[in-house]
Write a protein that binds this DNA or RNA. Sequence first.
DNA 1: GTCGTTACGGTTGAC
DNA 2: GCGTCAACCGTAACG
Length: 188
Amino acid sequence: MTALAGSVPRMMRPTLAQNYPRSGFPLEVSTPLGQGRVNQLGGVFINGRPLPNHIRHKIVEMAHHGIRPCVISRQLRVSHGCVSKILCRYQETGSIRPGAIGGSKPKQGTTPDVERRIEEYKRENPVSSISRIMRTKFGGKGEEEEEEDEIEKKELEDSERRAKHSIEGILGDRYRTHILSFAVQLSI
DNA sequence: GTCGTTACGGTTGAC
DNA sequence: GCGTCAACCGTAACG
């Protein structure tokens, strides 16, 4: 028994489930956004899911105003690791959006060929239709905001869909409204 | 006290 | 329709 708590190797650390035997986390909260959990700072999060867009916005905005990450972390009740990660990504990519979760890698091998074909088509058909199609399909300049709106909309739809299949959905809209206002309060 | 990093459990979505 | 797997998520903890 010589190993002190501070010297326990990472791999020997007790698992979350061991730390919090009931649920793996200190507290579970049912919200319209799914099975929320409460972190050490008292913030609500959904394990495995990205933070809501407005929280991410707030993190970047506060950092922009020169507020230190530790303060942001405490104020928004988001772990500092997460704040750090989001700010790093924002610096690197200029985007606050989470990466694409799930799915498989796009098929490789065909990409250069496809690109070459497109170039050929463009040369042969100098009409703007191809470019237009490409813009429509893959997006273009200044559509970040549109995409964010799109994501917000999707999140809302998702939460509504989940709510319909959760206890609050079953219990009805009045209960849901309570939960919603609770969630808004928690998210400041 | 602050911050970068990383192991971990969990979710998601293409294949 | 279902299972697999890789990529991502945020938290918690270490240094």
